[in-house]
Computed example of a mutant assay.
Amino acid sequence: MTIRTATPADADAITAIYAPIVQHTSISFELEVPTVEQMRGRIAQTLQTLPWLVCEDTQGRVNGYVYASKHRERPAYQWSVDTTAYIREDARGQGIGKQLYGELKRILVGLGYCQAFAGIALPNQASVALHESVGFEALGVYRQVGFKHGQWHDVGWWQCSLQSPAQPAVPLKFDALAHHTDVFQA
């Protein structure tokens, strides 16, 4: 298995992983599957400031992905990120999510981030187990916050403390470090 920085060329594989989740579950609150072109844009935009990683199997197929996004707009939140991870259905249960999160957390610390958050549409025991296995702790639940597939859904929030410097520096942008963190063997 290889974990590497995603590229816009991964949009087809990432969209293929994400599409059935949007279409058939309430795990994602998107109502329409993004096009490959839209996904390509999301990847490129994310990589300007934050990491987006993919895990490839030995045949070069993308098994899963993880990325970070800005937590909130106000400046005092700049040391916090939201995280997202999805694993291809036939690759789940193989530790891919743990490996992706391990590398993501390492990079986030290197960039200067202090807190990571994950919102999980409930119920989703597999995602809860993954996040708790990599150090996220439950914070609370937004009740009936999303409406999809004809019903209301709760979202649980989890937090992972990455580091706690007394005087944090402004986080670095990922594109400035990307050439140093391109490929990681898992």
Score class of each variant (00 low, 15 high):
81 V>G: 09
52 W>Q: 02
73 E>W: 01
66 V>L: 04
71 H>S: 11
42 R>W: 10
53 L>I: 10
24 H>R: 14
69 S>E: 08
20 P>M: 09
13 A>R: 07
47 L>E: 07
26 S>M: 01
41 G>N: 14
35 T>R: 01
43 I>Y: 02
63 N>W: 00
81 V>S: 06
28 S>M: 09
21 I>A: 08
33 V>P: 02
16 A>N: 09
41 G>R: 12
27 I>T: 14
35 T>G: 11
42 R>T: 10
72 R>V: 01
43 I>H: 01
44 A>R: 12
50 L>D: 02
24 H>I: 00
74 R>V: 13
71 H>Q: 13
33 V>F: 01
58 T>N: 14
46 T>M: 06
30 E>P: 02
89 E>L: 12
20 P>V: 07
50 L>Q: 11
40 R>I: 07
18 Y>V: 05
22 V>H: 05
29 F>P: 00
43 I>V: 10
84 T>R: 09
52 W>F: 14
85 A>Q: 02
23 Q>A: 15
42 R>H: 11
52 W>L: 05
50 L>C: 00
67 Y>Q: 01
23 Q>E: 15
48 Q>W: 00
32 E>K: 14
76 A>F: 12
64 G>P: 04
28 S>K: 05
52 W>I: 03
68 A>K: 09
54 V>T: 10
29 F>R: 04
69 S>Q: 11
82 D>S: 12
58 T>S: 15
68 A>R: 06
77 Y>E: 08
14 I>N: 06
41 G>I: 02
69 S>Y: 01
18 Y>L: 13
88 R>K: 12
26 S>I: 03
36 V>Q: 14
28 S>Y: 02
48 Q>M: 08
53 L>G: 09
12 D>W: 02
50 L>Y: 08
12 D>R: 13
35 T>I: 04
75 P>S: 10
71 H>D: 05
20 P>N: 06
62 V>L: 07
62 V>M: 07
39 M>K: 08
72 R>D: 04
73 E>M: 03
29 F>G: 02
15 T>Y: 04
15 T>G: 05
66 V>E: 00
65 Y>H: 13
49 T>E: 14
58 T>A: 15
74 R>E: 10
86 Y>M: 08
51 P>W: 07
78 Q>W: 07
17 I>M: 10
22 V>A: 09
68 A>T: 12
20 P>G: 08
64 G>S: 07
